[in-house]
Design a protein around this nucleic acid. Structure first.
Lengths: 182, 182
DNA sequence: GATTAAGTGGACGCCATGTCCAGTTTGCTG
DNA sequence: CAGCAAACTGGACATGGCGTCCACTTAATC
């Protein structure tokens, strides 16, 4: 069980980190910056979060949990009860919303490989995999990562900022993919 | 024009870097390691390659150029003359081969965002974009990045190493995507 | 109130990074 | 062929983030 002072500091760290990530590009935020802004020492920070990525992930997890809930128990087509292709389409729509809303945080993750190791990725992965199995397509295992790849934060950020695309355009294009399940 | 000693050192640096990247994981290779293995000083190394990523990119460019040549002027379906969907399929096949052959190098890039800024990415992008335009689909601009996303080195490496997928499985799954152009 | 385990924070050593400049090599020119 | 300017070289150096460590403090339990 978590002690009271530990809980207080965890909260401080997360809000301080959220502010800093919102204010400037991620690699310009050092561990020391976060520690100072949160009013805690370096050691305290490292105790829970060994690096920047793990902080960003913790920040995202909260928001992702809500979406996960809707996917598991919400109304169709996002929740159970609709055809796999329709559920996948709803998932893409919801993910674009999530990415857009937390763009700066998501950018803060700046993770590359470690993205795959987060709990959230495992969840998305299991969800899409079950949809593919239900749709009885071939090559499920490889297809899962292929369908999730366009949702990588780097890809989304690149589309928005370098290519000047609007969220609806990205959604529209993603909605072509569920056709593969039909 | 490049001086003789500069050219000699460039070659030394690239072969030394190739050896090192092949031998151990990328972040364990420091700039100093490369400089020492190449028998040049630190300053010389930094003169041309400001960071690890730019070295890996230089190494890859060579091999990618050959594939680019085949795409531009080779025989169909990779080269001109086939239907867009078939050319896209051939492109996926060739890319999986390329990724597989240079897996360790590709992993060395370890780039995340900066991947989009390489010349090679621009080329792949232009190619896929022209295929999409020829196929007269909607939302071309957003679709380009979506179709290229599964080819990100991180994704491929994850599929191969963490998920234990074989190259042919990945290829097989990728070959479902060209159906979107029909 | 005493005990114990967990939590805290800042000082410290380490190492990679990138810069800088004095010396060297190269290619050109008269 | 000799002399010169520009480009190139390489190692010494300053910088700064990273992660650890440990003496001290605080919270929970009895």
């Amino acid at each position: 069980m978590e002690r009271a002072d530990a809980a207080r500091n965890r909260a401080r760290i997360l809000t301080a980190a959220a502010d800093l990530f919102a204010a400037r590009p991620p690699h310009e935020v050092t561990m020391e910056d976060i520690a100072r802004a949160a009013g805690v020492g370096r050691g305290t920070l490292y105790r829970r979060y060994p690096d920047r990525a793990s902080i960003a992930v913790a920040l995202l997890d909260e928001h992702e949990r809500e979406l996960q809930e809707r996917m598991l128990r919400g109304a169709p087509p996002l929740g159970p009860g609709a055809a796999p292709a329709d559920r996948l389409a709803a998932f893409y729509g919801a993910m674009v919303e999530l990415l857009e809303r937390h763009r700066h945080l998501v950018l803060g993750s700046e993770v590359g490989r470690s993205r795959f190791e987060t709990g959230a990725y495992g969840f998305w992965r299991a969800h899409v995999r079950s949809l593919l199995l239900a749709a009885e397509v071939k090559e499920v295992e490889a297809l899962v990562e292929i369908l999730l790849a366009p949702l990588a934060p780097e890809v989304y950020t690149y589309q928005r900022e370098e290519r000047g695309l609007q969220p609806w355009q990205i959604t529209e294009a993603l909605l072509k993919l569920p056709a593969l399940l039909r």
